[in-house]
């Protein structure tokens, strides 16, 4: 009997309303860091419990302590800070970080929260980091002589954090690079930087890449040195599977089966069909099933409804294909 089709999620979950309020209260100086931390841990415990209840195999800590995936690290890395407001769309703005000095690591920055989350469950919890290319691309870079210098310096910092998570016992470490697919000329740089991060790392390494048109850059993209590529599939009708099948793919895939940008819940049949398309050319032990992207923009109820469908679909496929 073959094994596989482990279920997981990409990283973030939405912040519960009490935590969102506590974060703005803390920013305004109305509550202490200790009080905020208490509520952050409460939300982390609740999201771990929810994932266990939903039946996921590999968990995430939910990123309750993070504003966003770049800002959190920009607040902590020496050489980086939070800059002025830039609009992302409409009436949404974010503080775009700035690299203003030499990047250094004086962490760890993520190990405490990972250890806390892992202490709440016997199932593995992923360590969650943002990759060097995305960290630089989504910041203003004012210090290094070239973009390449900045990305490689950032890679050395992210590597230290990766090793710290591994030393703490993390078996899965995810280093997300959502920006890696948008600038064709830079994919080799993103891959070189990831090589610095993952060299000699024995924990399973994963990268999540999204928003891109993968087909034209597929050959370059899959050279990014990680064990697993976590990719959005559902929101593009699983088109990418055809490219992988045609051009070859020998790594693990995190198969995104839930479109996180719509309220609409997928049907079990849709998800079953997607998983079967991957099984046509990949063994189940190399397929992990998860949503397309972080679930930060969905409420916990919406997320749970979607994940239930995913878990049920995996159960059906496993039964039909006699997968353990």
């Amino acid at each position: 009997m073959s094994k596989g089709l482990l279920t997981t999620s990409v990283g973030s979950f939405g912040k519960p309303p009490y935590l969102a309020k506590a974060r703005s209260d803390h920013a305004a100086g109305r509550i202490s860091a200790e009080d905020l931390d208490k509520l952050t841990r409460q939300a982390t415990q609740e999201i771990i419990d929810l994932q266990v209840e939903l039946g996921l195999d590999i968990l995430v800590h939910g990123e309750m302590e993070r504003g966003d995936m770049v800002a959190y690290f920009a607040e902590h890395f020496p050489g980086m800070s939070i800059g002025g407001l830039v609009r992302s769309y409409g009436n949404r703005y974010y503080h775009k970080p700035v690299i203003h000095n030499e990047l250094r690591w004086d962490g760890p920055y993520t190990v405490d929260m990972w250890k806390y989350a892992q202490s709440l469950t016997d199932r593995p919890v992923k360590g969650m980091l943002t990759g060097p290319y995305t960290m630089v691309d989504w910041a203003f870079e004012e210090y290094y002589p070239s973009r390449r210098d900045a990305v490689l310096a950032m890679a050395r910092v992210v590597r230290e954090e990766t090793l710290a998570l591994q030393d703490a016992g993390a078996r899965y470490i995810q280093i997300d690079e959502p920006a890696a697919s948008v600038r064709f000329d830079d994919i080799d740089l993103a891959a070189e930087a990831m090589g610095i991060v993952t060299e000699g790392v024995t924990a399973k390494t994963i990268t999540h890449i999204c928003y891109g048109d993968f087909a034209p850059v597929y050959d370059q993209l899959i050279r990014i040195p990680v064990d697993q590529f976590d990719l959005e599939m559902a929101n593009s009708g699983y088109d990418l599977l055809d490219v992988m099948r045609e051009k070859g793919f020998d790594k693990e895939v995190g198969l995104g089966v839930l479109d996180v940008h719509t309220h609409k819940v997928e049907t079990v049949e849709e998800v079953v069909a997607g998983i079967k398309r991957a099984l046509e050319f990949m063994p189940p032990e190399r397929i992990y099933v998860d949503p397309d992207c972080g679930l930060k923009t969905r409420t916990w109820e919406e997320s749970a409804d979607k994940i239930r469908v995913m878990v049920e679909a995996v159960r059906r496929v496993k039964a039909e294909y006699a997968i353990e």
Binding site: Y89, Y211, H261
Partner: peptide
């Protein structure tokens, strides 16, 4: 319709 990334910027358009 929904949000899409605007070229290689980290900004979005509908």
């Amino acid at each position: 319709n929904g949000l899409i990334r605007f070229f290689d910027t980290n900004t979005y358009y509908r």
